[in-house]
Amino acid sequence: MAKLLEIRWHGRAGQGAKTAALVLAEAAISTGKYAQAFPEYGPERMGAPMKAYNRISDEPITVHHHVEEPDIVIVLDPTLLTVGNVKAGVPDDGIYLVNTPLSPSEMRARLGLEGSKAKVYTLDATQVSMDTIGRNIPNTPMIGALIAATGLLELDELLEDTRRKLSKKLRPEVVDKNMEAIKRAYREVAS
């Protein structure tokens, strides 16, 4: 990966978009890559639409501004599709990853991307997280789906780094459930 990869996360404050961006950056950094993760804060109230960003590269990253033309857009909450413009700045061949029970072709239509070169991936991350973790925490499975869709990291690298991080805060059985969520998302993401 010679090129700088830029990601935009769409979520609602409290859903873990910022955390997901941090987890992804830290995992990328632990494999020797350079990465940034940063949120765009507005009114910081639970449920408000918010964005978080990643930059990932093999080279040092010096820029410090919002990502305006993301290669990848990740939508943690499908209701955000009607609130903000998730397509803003995304190139024609951009990648979309949406948490939704819909199929990729249904989502493609929903996004108005029929006939475009864009790649659309979907995962019912809410269901995956309910089944595995027992709570609606879609951010963890969405990271699994992201690396499956992009090959950004190896699954094992992500699992190892996430396990190390979560083990500092969570009980072992909860950590295991998160691992399961990532693995299942990795398998189930559809394109």
Binding site: A21, L22, A25, E26, I29, Y34, A35, Q36, A37, F38, P39, Y41, P60, I61, H64
Partner: peptide, 12 residues
């Protein structure tokens, strides 16, 4: 350091 831009941004 710059608020949010650096304070809240993870970097290597």
């Amino acid at each position: 350091m710059d608020g949010f831009i650096i304070s809240h941004a993870m970097e290597v």
